[in-house]
């Protein structure tokens, strides 16, 4: 089964047909998806703004990153679970949108970057990392998340 055939199979399976028939299921899931955006935005910004020098400068980055990461994963859980449902509703539409695949690639990249480089830099703290390096890490993180969010907005247009 090719990816496209899989998308078609999901989209036209009985539960998904039933979901699409309801006028409010998709809007409600999209709304919860949007709330996940806010949660991730906050959890990412607390750490990245601190790394950029515009956040809670009096606090050690490590502690902030530790606290914020819990909410980042919660936000991501909301985003991914609702995102999968949204995808299944119109799987073949997203399959043909390049930006959908760009979004997925950026998402995987940013999650990998967050648990590797960003986490290591945050845990090391200011003493062991140059300000320029901290800023670069924050910029990469914010840029990748922005691509993910932009992709989300773009693929949502009819």
């Amino acid at each position: 089964m090719s990816v496209l055939e899989f998308c078609r199979w999901v989209q036209y399976s009985a539960p998904l047909v039933a979901m699409r028939a309801s006028p409010w299921v998709f809007p409600v899931i999209a709304t919860i998806h949007l709330m996940g955006l806010a949660l991730i935005g906050g959890a990412v910004l607390v750490v990245d703004l601190r790394l950029l020098g515009w956040g809670l400068q009096a606090q050690p980055v490590a502690a902030l990153a530790h606290d914020a990461e819990r909410w980042l994963w919660r936000g991501l859980l909301v985003m991914v679970s609702t995102g999968i449902l949204l995808f299944m509703c119109f799987a073949t539409k997203y399959y043909w949108l390049t930006f959908f695949w760009v979004k997925m690639a950026a998402l995987i990249l940013v999650v990998a970057f967050t648990v590797s480089v960003r986490r290591r830099v945050a845990m090391a703290g200011d003493a062991d990392t140059s300000p320029a390096r901290c800023k670069l890490v924050a910029l990469v993180s914010i840029s990748l998340w922005t691509i993910v969010a932009l992709g989300g907005r773009y693929i949502g247009f009819p």
Binding site: L34, L37, A38, L39, I40, G41, G42, A43, V44, L45, V46, L56, Q59, A63, L64, D67, A68, R70, W71, W145, T146, A149, L150, R153
Partner: peptide, 26 residues
């Protein structure tokens, strides 16, 4: 839509601190 992540995002982190659910040492 994208600015939701900045406006609501930072407001949510403040609210969670007020609830004692994050950054409790700050």
């Amino acid at each position: 839509v994208l600015t939701v992540s900045v406006f609501v995002g930072t407001a949510v982190m403040i609210d969670l601190r007020l609830l004692g659910r994050t950054m409790t040492h700050v």
